[in-house]
């Protein structure tokens, strides 16, 4: 069964999940929930994931994932390759819809509304839930057009002046304005790797999303560009809910407030980051973050 942790959030056990125990039920029936900080976290949760399972063809990649992701916080997803963290991330903006033979069961709600409801417009959803990828992927257009493209597409601006303002605001928020303000017409691909990644972040925030998903956003960058991105993430959390997948444990420890540890498709442990990195509850988590044989 699932055990409620004293520091909030929940801790699961893979073997017990395998017994098909729905975590949400335990949370609902747990009397301690009212006095538990988890209850507060749940109230402020931006994203609620309930019993989410995912299959690629016949292969199950996620098993009954339950997570409450708090608003305006950074939540890190960690775990070994193939543990399902990126698959999970892609469920949050329905990117997996584009993958053939994917089956998804369970639900994710954004602000208490299901994102898997048939009435949901996926393009609209993705304007609320932006994504930044591992490798910077600016459009083969100018810096300006990289930012302007989506707001124009979504009809968010009515004049060129408004668009100019939005481009400037987005680039400023992404910490890139000073570096590119005199070369907005230069191709986005001409920027350095770190700048390109910040351009992609500026592009994501130009449509004023609620949530930004980041899939190893700094793994292709040098330590200085990485530090800049991490600093940016810290600033962005004042405005956005951020979910970041990273293989860099120190990065997860540095940037996130909460961390979920995935292993073989299960969420093994989800807790505030300090607790998870100093006194993890599950042996599997301990083994992974300390570099032991699991």
């Amino acid at each position: 069964m699932t055990i409620k942790g004293e520091s909030g959030m929940y801790r699961g056990d893979a073997a017990e999940y395998a017994g098909n125990v729905a975590l949400g039920n335990h949370q609902a029936s747990d009397e301690t929930v009212e006095t538990n900080p988890a209850a507060e976290a749940a109230q402020a949760s931006k994203l609620r994931v309930q019993d989410l399972s995912l299959w690629y063809g016949d292969t199950q990649a996620l098993f009954d994932v339950n997570l409450d992701i708090p608003e305006r916080e950074v939540t890190a997803l960690i775990g070994p390759s193939g543990c399902g963290k990126s698959s999970f991330l892609r469920c949050i903006n329905r990117m997996n819809d584009l993958v053939p033979n994917v089956t998804i069961r369970g639900d994710i709600s954004l602000d208490a509304e299901s994102i898997y409801d048939p009435s949901v417009d996926v393009v609209q959803l993705r304007s609320h839930v932006g994504m930044v990828f591992q490798k910077p992927n600016p459009f083969p257009k100018s810096v300006y057009e990289n930012i302007a493209y989506a707001p124009r597409l979504h009809g968010l601006v009515s004049s060129r002046a408004e668009l100019d303002d939005l481009v400037e605001k987005s680039l400023k928020r992404a910490g890139l304005w000073r570096e590119v303000s005199d070369r907005l017409d230069a191709p986005g691909t001409a920027l350095s790797g770190g700048q390109q990644q910040r351009l992609c972040i500026a592009r994501a925030i130009a449509v004023d999303p609620d949530v930004i998903l980041m899939d190893e956003p700094a793994s292709a960058l040098d330590p200085l560009a990485t530090a800049t991105i991490e600093e940016l993430i810290d600033e962005l959390k004042a405005h956005y809910t951020i979910v970041i997948v990273t293989h860099n444990l120190q990065q997860a420890a540095r940037v996130s407030g909460y961390t979920a540890f995935f292993h073989m498709g299960y969420v093994i442990e989800y807790n505030d980051t300090t607790t998870l990195f100093t006194t993890p509850y599950e042996q599997k988590t301990e083994d992974y973050i300390t570099g032991r044989y699991g």
Binding site: L249, T278, T279, T285, E286
Partner: peptide, 9 residues
Amino acid sequence: RQPAASDLR
């Protein structure tokens, strides 16, 4: 090593 968990403790 940037120890974590029991190693850090």
